[in-house]
Nucleic acid binder design. Structure first.
Lengths: 252, 252
DNA sequence: GAACAGTGTTCTATATTATAAAACAAATGG
DNA sequence: CCATTTGTTTTATAATATAGAACACTGTTC
């Protein structure tokens, strides 16, 4: 097990910032580490670049950076939503026999963070961690439909509406129209827009703050499930999503 | 500004763990970083050593470690207590003309995290970040007096009762007795036990959870302030501490 | 006010250390 | 059961971290 000295030293330096000594000078650090000033300086600057430490404006001393807050929030957030959702996803899948997904927004794409395969359908293209376009998927539509107009415009400026199938919406105005429909109905549909032969529906999961934290989708094969049947499934994933949202602390 | 490559790469790797992709295989990481597997492996193992990433038990995949939670808690905690306390410390100092300290526990020592000098007294030995023994200071006594018996015994096992002055309590049993007195009175006194000519009083500041988060002390010169006057000061720092505790979310 | 001790920073040489290739083992899957 | 893909270990080399020296800057002390 080879240990990278530079990295190891840097993380040990960070450990020097305790409740007792939240502010440290570069000289103090080099003394306590038994390292040269210049060595410590280089390590500190690199840590600072990533926000692991900050430099006090006037005193010039170093303190722990906000990256720790950011990453810990991320840690808690993602842990919660998956563990909260999984039992409900399994329930929906066993009720319907279809494949169910949990997807969150990452930049300008959706990302599958959970998948429960149904007995009836075999959806191949999805996999946990895999990315999915926003404009060609039900989950993608749900993930951005409820955002504020301003944020939405910014997100979609320069967006690449590449056609995935012949049914994919490739026009900006048409897509905005589609999103308005999603808002009014409360759920999104993708009718072979992402993959031929596959029709999906998706509903939003809301987090503590009320924002859309994730989307749940159900994927069906057009040859075996009609549009009417899919609408029935929508009600099922809707109530599952509501229960998950409630578990996450959302009150409507 | 020289950037340490190894450290920079390691922190970039950590950044790959997003809400969207909380679990990553070593191969995925090396692909996305454009680095060799073995290089990534070494970096990961070193990060893991410090708890910045964890390895999933059965899948073998990596995820963000709990160190982020620990350090962010630390960050919030220390930031809150100092900013919350400072205005009250200044008020006490200007009211009394004496020097006021804010001290927290770090291992088996107290550490000054704030100091407001009074006009009348010039306390030389203290300084922010400097350490003070638990057994010879009023703040030290307060910091540990309200801990549970079990934790207290563990903390004091093998404790070094070095005499700071001829008045220092150097006996374990006598010290436990002193701590009992602190608990019953609600405040602690150090009568030239840490420095000849200096007499201090200290009271606890309680955090959100109810535990003793810090201690506030007032330091006086024995030649200018009588024991009776010091008792008057105790009431002043007591109410200051209560207000700070309240600001920190403590409800009695 | 001048000398001084302290600070953080930049630059440069060299020698240590990170790096990636290869070889290995262990698991996965068709 | 062979073929892939995985994570890990080992090893050589070359790139990189390291610390020394020199720098500029601040604030203290006499």
């Amino acid at each position: 097990m080879p240990i990278i000295q530079a990295l190891d030293r840097a993380l040990k330096i960070v450990d020097l910032f305790t409740e007792a000594t939240p502010l440290l000078k570069i000289t103090e650090i080099s003394e306590r580490m038994g390292l040269h000033k210049s060595t410590v300086h280089s390590l500190l600057k690199t840590l600072q670049l990533h926000g692991y430490i900050d430099q006090d404006a006037d005193s010039g001393k170093y303190r722990l950076g906000l990256t720790y807050l950011v990453k810990s929030g991320l840690l808690l957030g993602s842990m919660d939503i998956r563990t909260a959702a999984l039992p409900y996803l399994k329930k929906v899948s066993s009720q319907t026999g279809q494949t169910v997904h949990l997807v969150i927004l990452d930049g300008r794409e959706g990302v599958y963070i959970e998948k429960v395969e149904g007995e009836l359908a075999a959806i191949r293209y999805s996999r946990i961690g895999r990315r999915v376009p926003l404009h060609s998927s039900a989950v993608g539509k749900v993930l951005i439909a409820f955002r504020e107009q301003e944020a939405l415009v910014k997100l979609l400026s320069g967006y690449d509406f590449t056609a995935q199938t012949k049914y994919t919406i490739t026009d900006y105005a048409l897509f905005l129209n589609e999103l308005a429909k999603v808002r009014s109905r409360g759920y999104a549909v993708d009718d072979q827009e992402n993959e031929l032969g596959v029709r999906c529906a998706a509903v939003p999961v809301r987090g503590y703050g009320g924002g859309v934290a994730a989307a749940i989708s159900i994927s069906t094969m057009v040859v075996s499930v009609s549009e009417e049947e899919l609408e029935g499934y929508v009600r099922i994933i809707q109530s599952a999503a509501d229960e998950i949202s409630s578990d996450l602390g959302f009150r409507s």
